[in-house]
């Protein structure tokens, strides 16, 4: 068994979609409090290309980075049955983006920065709803 496969045996993964190294460091510190494997993806495209077959507990995606592609990304997630496990975090949060994301079925949309405790609670809440097995790319 290779290392990644072994790592994923721990339980459903938290998938972080974030390209900013500083944000990744901060999120890693936070996610170390959870008993979940953490997988990093630098972009939504990379995640969508690689996520098939992964047991997903929660997806944390940077809303600022998604920008205008956010809507299409959430649509793809929902076709794979993953939107309900998704939390969008955004520094430049705004009401319209939040409403659109939730209408398309994401679990939460959070303006950051937030206290670690609060962000952890929201992530735990999503994980506790059960894992989603990431389906194949829809045609």
């Amino acid at each position: 068994m290779d290392l990644q496969t072994e790592y994923l045996q721990i339980g459903p993964a938290v998938c972080v979609i974030e390209s900013d190294p500083n944000m990744n460091i901060q999120l890693d510190k936070l996610l170390a409090y959870l008993d979940s494997p953490v997988l990093h993806y630098l972009s939504a495209e990379i995640f969508l290309a690689e996520c098939e077959g992964i047991e997903v507990g929660c997806i944390l995606a940077d809303g600022d980075q998604l920008g205008a592609q956010g809507a299409q990304f959430i649509e793809e997630l929902s076709q794979r049955g993953l939107s309900g496990a998704t939390i969008i975090i955004a520094r430049h949060a705004n009401i319209d983006d939040a409403v659109k994301a939730l209408q398309r079925g994401v679990a939460d949309y959070i303006e950051i920065p937030q206290p670690d405790r609060l962000l952890l609670a929201k992530i735990r809440q999503v994980i506790s709803r059960g894992a989603c097995l990431s389906g194949p790319r829809p045609h």
């Binding site: 009401i95 319209d96 939040a98 409403v99 939730l102 209408q103 939460d108 949309y109 303006e111």
Partner: peptide, 19 residues
């Protein structure tokens, strides 16, 4: 309105939220 308020409204089943 603020973002948390909009999020809560939709999570509780609102169809839409407009400022």
């Amino acid at each position: 309105g603020d973002v948390p308020m909009a999020v809560k409204a939709i999570q509780y089943g609102a169809a839409d939220f407009i400022q």
